[in-house]
């Protein structure tokens, strides 16, 4: 795994407030990297440092193996959470201006902008003023502006806010498309279901500190508690439950099932394998359901923040 972005021991304070405390990150090239954390944790400060809007007090940021510098601006696209456009400027003109600020030539920008606007079926808006657009339309334009210069690294802060489900899906597909074409994406959001869906890697920042980082699957393995959801077919649920309780660490559980089963969750005892557990269960009842509980990104987020 080669990393496109390395953040090394970055610190940043505002007056007496420490916004980032010794944060180090590696973002793998071509991946979608979820940057997570509660409000006010320091995510925005870190993103601003990567965008060179703010300078860190100490520590370094490396982009594509070299120390981050002004030239790299053209390889980074940033969709901030607090976004907006010039209201009285026309759609086409505005997009071209922003693309040229990123270092694109005018001809190239016109060509790409046409492509994107046709793709999003908004080609007819070219000469409309932004203030005439609906919120959703403006968000589409904002997304186009962010990706127009074909950045190597795309930083998206709550990219789905303001979109209806149809357009949110459209944007999601585009994000995956970009990823398949080799763009690395840093994705900051509070919507855990989209983290689950999109992210390969995550990092979690809480109270200015990095508390968690790595491959989402590895992290899930790390956070799983060897607990199994079990559905047992029986006529005497209470008796069975009592019996099992003497044997294992058991609690009632609730999951979707078409059977009228005894639904419980069982923690795998030490020196037991899954098979040992299953064997022991099959001796007592018919097993309709036997699934290991994998923590969701949401569970991991809450657990990591609370533990901290």
């Amino acid at each position: 795994m080669s990393s496109i972005l390395s953040v090394k021991r970055v610190e940043k304070s505002f007056g007496n407030f420490k916004a980032l405390n010794n944060v180090s990150l590696e973002v793998a090239s071509g991946s979608i990297f979820g940057l997570l954390g509660p409000n006010g944790a320091g995510k925005t400060t870190l993103i601003r440092i990567i965008n060179q809007i703010t300078l860190p007090d100490s520590g370094e940021v490396y982009f594509d193996g070299k120390k981050l510098n002004q030239e790299d601006i053209r390889f980074i696209g940033y969709l901030p959470e607090e976004r907006g456009l010039y209201k009285s400027m026309k759609v086409g003109e505005q997009a071209l201006y922003l693309a040229q600020l990123k270092g694109l030539s005018k001809q190239e920008a016109v060509k790409r902008l046409k492509f994107w606007m046709d793709k999003f079926e908004i080609g007819s808006w070219w000469n409309k003023k932004v203030e005439e657009l609906s919120k959703g339309m403006a968000q589409k334009l904002q997304f186009i502006v962010t990706v127009l210069h074909q950045p190597k690294l795309l930083i998206l802060d709550e990219p789905f806010s303001g979109f209806d489900p149809v357009n949110a899906n459209l944007i999601k597909d585009e994000i995956l498309n970009l990823k398949n074409n080799g763009t690395t994406i840093i994705f900051s959001t509070h919507r855990m279901e989209s983290v689950e869906e999109l992210c390969d890697y995550i990092a979690l920042i809480n109270k200015s500190n990095l508390v968690l980082q790595g491959n989402l699957i590895d992290i899930k393995k790390q956070y799983k508690s060897d607990t199994f959801e079990v559905g047992l077919q029986t006529d005497a649920k209470e008796e069975l439950f009592k019996r099992l309780k003497n044997q294992f660490n058991v609690s009632y559980s609730n999951f979707k099932s078409i059977n009228n089963d005894l639904k419980i969750s069982i923690k795998l005892p030490e020196n037991y394998s899954q098979n040992d557990l299953l064997l022991s269960l099959t001796k007592q009842a018919v097993v309709n359901h036997f699934v290991e509980v994998i923590p969701s990104a949401n569970d991991i987020f809450i657990k990591a923040v609370q533990e901290n």
Binding site: I73, I76, Y78, E82, R83, L85, Y86, L101, Q142
Partner: peptide, 17 residues
């Protein structure tokens, strides 16, 4: 002030100083 209230400022300063 217009750039601030329309919130375009953060987009702009990610491209220019």
């Amino acid at each position: 002030i217009e750039e601030k209230t329309s919130r375009i400022i953060e987009v702009i300063i990610s491209s220019v100083k």
